[in-house]
Computed example of a mutant assay.
Amino acid sequence: MSDPRQVAPPHERADAGAHASFDPLRLCVYATVALVAWLLGPVALLGFAVLGVVGYARARRAGLLRSRCKLGDTRLVIAYLVVLALLGAAGAAYALGGGHVGV
């Protein structure tokens, strides 16, 4: 007998039928990312953007041409993430230079 507090793996959820409940894990992830971004400001933006650029560059080299991201084409997604990384770097430099960004 399985623990009802545990989320079933994807291969078991198909068999669960109408009794399966929705797990809003993405909402928890989004809230955690927002918390980190709020606490770390431009440094978090820089980190997440660089992580995204690296991930999408690897995926593109592996053959991914279209993303589920609203921008679609992985080249556009990478360009967008590079712009965010530049903004994060500029914000971090501004904050370290005596300006005030974030909390």
Rank of each mutant, 00 (worst) to 15 (best):
residue 18 A to W: 10
residue 94 Y to N: 03
residue 33 V to H: 10
residue 95 A to C: 01
residue 11 H to A: 15
residue 34 A to C: 06
residue 46 L to M: 09
residue 60 R to Y: 05
residue 53 V to R: 02
residue 43 V to G: 08
residue 95 A to L: 05
residue 22 F to C: 04
residue 50 V to Y: 02
residue 61 R to Q: 10
residue 4 P to C: 07
residue 1 M to I: 11
residue 3 D to N: 15
residue 17 G to P: 10
residue 91 G to H: 05
residue 85 A to L: 06
residue 56 Y to C: 07
residue 69 C to A: 09
residue 77 V to P: 04
residue 52 G to R: 08
residue 25 L to H: 08
residue 28 C to N: 14
residue 13 R to D: 09
residue 16 A to S: 01
residue 47 G to M: 11
residue 35 L to G: 11
residue 96 L to M: 09
residue 38 W to C: 11
residue 55 G to T: 09
residue 3 D to W: 11
residue 83 V to A: 15
residue 15 D to G: 10
residue 86 L to F: 11
residue 29 V to D: 11
residue 86 L to H: 03
residue 64 L to P: 03
residue 54 V to Y: 02
residue 44 A to H: 08
residue 62 A to H: 06
residue 9 P to E: 13
residue 92 A to Q: 09
residue 85 A to N: 12
residue 97 G to V: 03
residue 89 A to P: 02
residue 99 G to A: 13
residue 4 P to D: 10
residue 61 R to T: 00
residue 43 V to H: 10
residue 1 M to H: 14
residue 65 L to F: 07
residue 85 A to Y: 04
residue 81 L to R: 13
residue 50 V to S: 02
residue 29 V to F: 14
residue 65 L to G: 04
residue 87 L to G: 07
residue 100 H to S: 06
residue 50 V to R: 00
residue 83 V to S: 07
residue 78 I to F: 01
residue 93 A to G: 09
residue 97 G to C: 01
residue 42 P to A: 13
residue 22 F to V: 10
residue 51 L to D: 06
residue 90 A to G: 12
residue 98 G to E: 07
residue 39 L to D: 12
residue 73 D to V: 10
residue 76 L to T: 09
residue 59 A to H: 01
residue 49 A to K: 01
residue 66 R to F: 05
residue 99 G to D: 10
residue 74 T to Y: 03
residue 73 D to P: 05
residue 101 V to E: 05
residue 62 A to L: 11
residue 42 P to N: 03
residue 18 A to Q: 13
residue 49 A to I: 04
residue 102 G to P: 00
residue 4 P to G: 04
residue 27 L to C: 11
residue 5 R to G: 15
residue 70 K to I: 10
residue 20 A to W: 12
residue 61 R to E: 14
residue 1 M to G: 15
residue 23 D to T: 14
residue 100 H to Y: 04
residue 14 A to F: 01
residue 47 G to P: 04
residue 71 L to E: 06
residue 43 V to P: 00
residue 40 L to T: 00
residue 76 L to I: 05
residue 95 A to K: 11
residue 34 A to R: 02
residue 88 G to V: 08
residue 44 A to N: 10
residue 79 A to G: 12
residue 27 L to V: 15
residue 20 A to K: 15
residue 37 A to N: 06
residue 81 L to Q: 10
residue 92 A to W: 08
residue 73 D to C: 05
residue 95 A to S: 13
residue 34 A to H: 02
residue 55 G to P: 01
residue 37 A to Y: 01
residue 71 L to K: 06
residue 59 A to C: 00
residue 26 R to V: 14
residue 77 V to M: 07
residue 38 W to I: 09
residue 37 A to S: 15
